[in-house]
Design a protein around this nucleic acid. Sequence first.
DNA 1: GTCTATACACAGATAGAC
DNA 2: GTCTATCTGTGTATAGAC
Lengths: 242, 242
Amino acid sequence: MKYSEFLKILSDYKEEFNKENLFENRDKIRVKKDSSVAKNLERIFDATLVISNKKGFQAMTMRDLSREVELSMGALYSYFPSKEDLLTMLQHHGRSITKSILEKYINLEKNPADKLKTGVNIHLYLSEAMQPWFYFSYMEARNLSEQEQTRAIESELYTEKIFEEILQEGEKTGVFLVRNHQLTAGIIKAMLQDWYLKRWKYAKRNISVEQYAKYLISIIEAFCLSPEDAKMKKIRGENGLH
Amino acid sequence: MKYSEFLKILSDYKEEFNKENLFENRDKIRVKKDSSVAKNLERIFDATLVISNKKGFQAMTMRDLSREVELSMGALYSYFPSKEDLLTMLQHHGRSITKSILEKYINLEKNPADKLKTGVNIHLYLSEAMQPWFYFSYMEARNLSEQEQTRAIESELYTEKIFEEILQEGEKTGVFLVRNHQLTAGIIKAMLQDWYLKRWKYAKRNISVEQYAKYLISIIEAFCLSPEDAKMKKIRGENGLH
DNA sequence: GTCTATACACAGATAGAC
DNA sequence: GTCTATCTGTGTATAGAC
């Protein structure tokens, strides 16, 4: 799938998703009109990401946020009970979307080799489309409450587990070699994360998501694919390095 | 080289290094006696790393630090002019050591394949021995002044460049395949960084630095090594996966 | 060189008018 | 629902005694 296609699907999906998700933290929001919440909460989230990703969530003052959102301090505080809750709400929001989309797409594929490819692609596309959130989520995990930190770690390990299982399944069917799949999955995760953690670097070097995705897949396959399958790929010219 | 050997060499090196390096920021320190500076500055740095890595440098208050170091606020401030300067001094300190050691070891090797191996090994060993500093340096880069941020980025790209050049050299001599070496180097860096960024995870899974190093090298070689060299390795049983 | 005490700025949060 | 004005706590930093 091309990134542009993904983007279209994502925007539809997000809209639908927001309608359901809005009410998850509804009790924490004092404002009654749904239309106001929908409009302003998104602005608040976006502004939080912009400011925090520049100087960190702790360093962002509520006055900074108030200025950026163009709402007074008083008005701001009717959309969340405290700064800490704002953080929790924002983390939670992104996590739900991510999980939901990642699962949906991987389950479309049948065989392990395709699942792996799709997993890498979708994760990269998702983190490209929501780069500010992904970066934020990574950098601010420390500032969460203990309970929320546990959730964040679970979510992190969950993504890894998906890849681990794909590799395991592939070993059984003979497409993938016998390896330490847990370790491999962790390293795949690290390579995926580099894309949103060092976004500035890749932008500067004019590397597109699609290029990066292809490159990652070729690295993983060089290491994991069993020799016969690798040979097939080579003949078909599918190594995607040029 | 084993990690234990590396540790021994490092501690000697560090001592020698500290003597020279102490005087780099000497003008910023109001305390006159060198012995006091040597003793307390290290305690201050260590404590800063402990607290900051738990909750972030911004969130660490000077009262927190004062408590941990067991020095009063007044005494603390005679070792650095401001909180911001403390950050700069600490970042600078670690960077100097890192650069100096990394270069020293890689230059010992002659051929690209060994350089690559040594580069990966030493970087991992170094980041293992100084994990708190590496983590800190990564997470707090945003809080640096613009000038210091530039320096941090340069330092980051410098390490990458080392690997890029090794790969290029290897391509010429025929041990490595034709690839996008800049991209590969970036991904190698990402895999190296995962070791100190997710230290808790690898500790929990009982993965040692040596194991991780071997695994990374085998991944990189699977992707980069030209077929003849790869075959040689396989025969000699050097893939290090068991 | 280290301490205690304090200055001063600014943070998060809320009350109450509109 | 949004604003302005204000409370209260806590942050960085320093002055001056020992």
